[in-house]
């Protein structure tokens, strides 16, 4: 085994295992954190770090083949849809009236002029457009 191949192997080892570690941390966070709003951030760890590192590690493992192209397509897709789905969940929770518990010493959440009965529809329209544009 040449030195370059050895470096590639070790690097992909590190990337895959650390990616799996972050994926596990994100899942652990959704299980452990106390309320919905903080759990959103834990899921975000799996969506960003875990996904990027795992895909990068597998890309290194497969070299320059069609497999890498497929991995990159999956990666780009998850890179765009992951935050969009998280935003959709958060937005739906906010519109339905769920509010985060503010930390002590901080002024309460910003007022929500758009969540009244009339405004909610127009606002939903914007969210849907954004989703369509991102996808």
């Amino acid at each position: 085994m040449s030195t370059a191949a050895l470096i590639q192997e070790v690097l992909s080892w590190v990337l895959v295992v650390s990616g799996a570690f972050f994926a596990l941390v994100g899942a652990f966070g959704t299980w452990r954190l106390p309320d919905f709003w903080s759990r959103l951030h834990a899921a975000s760890v799996t969506d960003s770090a875990g996904m990027i590192l795992l895909i990068a590690g597998m890309c290194l493992q497969s070299g320059l083949t069609l497999v890498t192209v497929k991995l990159i397509v999956i990666g780009i897709f998850l890179f765009i849809t992951g935050p969009t789905a998280t935003h959709a969940v958060a937005n739906a929770a906010l519109v339905s009236g769920l509010r985060p518990r503010e930390a002590e010493g901080l002024i309460a959440a910003e007022p929500e002029p758009l969540t009244v009965a009339g405004g909610a529809e127009g606002d939903a329209e914007g969210t849907r457009k954004e989703t369509a544009g991102a996808a």
């Binding site: 795992l54 497969s62 929770a93 769920l98």
Partner: peptide, 27 residues
């Protein structure tokens, strides 16, 4: 999960993990 949004979040996360698992399983 106490609220329905916790569950939706969990399902979404489960799906992401499934995608990664299928890819890793292939390798």
């Amino acid at each position: 999960g106490p609220t329905v949004y916790d569950r939706v979040l969990a399902v979404n996360l489960f799906g992401t993990l499934t995608v990664l698992l299928i890819a890793v399983k292939g390798f």
